[in-house]
């Protein structure tokens, strides 16, 4: 029993780590540009497929960095060509636009790589279980969690210490003032979008190594990522981080005792948080309205 619970908590942390990577990117874009990126999950999928194409040429380790970078470049192109046009307009337009993009990207992946699942080769050095007792802790899982940790630390350091990061944070608080101070807001939004998409692409590569590739692989992550943001509190990246881990572990523990409710429990958590603390666990007053 202990082992089962431990197994599921480990699972939950890993799933939660994916939610966190997805949700942090979504959250960045939402906070600065007021756009919910419905296509976020499809950028994740695209990142996985890019890695699939790149690995035979440059190997897994390089692909782990290059594939998300390529995804981010696609993201910038999409942002410059389309999403930029709906900034500042009624939010219904940005939702519809990214919704349509999600359809298109999914169909493109299906068209190019087929509907069949494809495996992503992971180096043998990290594919082994670490111990016989805790068979479920493979090297790859530890590796995933480590990469997510590095990425999240990197993101927070970037936002805290780099010039662009500081401007992004300032823009989240008051974009008009930032623009008045002479910052190129258009460029800032593009970069911010790219950072968000990079995280999605990275999650895509990691997820592909664990569960393989298919055109819908990101879809199951989208709703939990929304919920991670709502639970953690809109406007707070630390909240998103906490929210993602919380719902990942909560769903995993529910799986032990009552598997059919595993999907539902995260929605229950959301409803409870909205009832008891409408701004989210770490959200700031007024950010949600």
């Amino acid at each position: 029993m202990t082992q089962l619970v431990l197994f599921n908590i480990t699972n939950g942390l890993i799933v939660g780590a994916f939610y966190v990577l997805m949700a942090l990117g979504l959250s960045l874009i939402l906070n600065l540009s007021n756009v919910i990126n419905f296509a976020h999950a499809n950028f994740l999928t695209l990142g996985g497929y890019f890695a699939y194409v790149l690995i035979p040429f440059i190997g897994f380790w390089a692909a782990l960095f290059v594939a998300p970078l390529l995804t981010a470049i696609v993201g910038i192109i999409v942002e410059r060509l389309m999403i930029r046009r709906v900034y500042g307009r009624d939010p219904v337009y940005s939702l519809l636009l990214t919704f349509g993009l999600a359809f298109i990207l999914q169909d493109v992946c299906r068209y190019v790589w087929g509907t069949q699942g494809l495996p992503l080769a992971v180096p043998a050095s990290i594919a082994q279980p670490l111990s016989a007792d805790l068979f479920f802790i493979t090297g790859y899982r530890v590796f995933m969690v480590a990469i997510v940790l590095v990425a999240v630390t990197g993101l927070f350091a970037f936002l805290r210490y780099s010039r662009i990061g500081v401007r992004i944070r300032a823009g989240i608080l008051d974009l008009e003032t930032v623009a008045a101070l002479g910052v190129n807001v258009q460029l800032l939004r593009s970069l911010n979008f790219a950072v968000g998409i990079f995280l999605a692409g990275l999650a895509g590569v990691l997820a592909a190594g664990q569960i393989g590739l298919n055109p819908n692989m990101g879809d199951t992550l989208l709703m939990p990522s929304f919920i991670a943001i709502i639970v953690g509190g809109v406007g707070s990246l630390a909240g998103t981080l906490f929210g993602g881990l919380l719902i990942g572990v909560a769903a995993a523990i529910t799986t032990v005792f009552y598997p059919t409710a595993a999907d539902a429990v995260i929605y229950v958590i959301m409803a409870l948080v909205l009832l008891a603390r409408p701004r989210g666990l770490l959200g700031e007053e007024g950010m949600m309205s």
Binding site: P91, F226, I230, M270, M288
Partner: peptide
């Protein structure tokens, strides 16, 4: 639970609420 939210946040919470019923019907 929704009426105090506005704009994209209202939209996001309605999406998430909507999915509750999808999962109930699905499961």
């Amino acid at each position: 639970l929704l009426v105090r939210r506005r704009g994209v946040y209202f939209a996001m919470i309605t999406i998430a609420f909507g999915q509750i019923f999808f999962y109930i019907a699905y499961r």
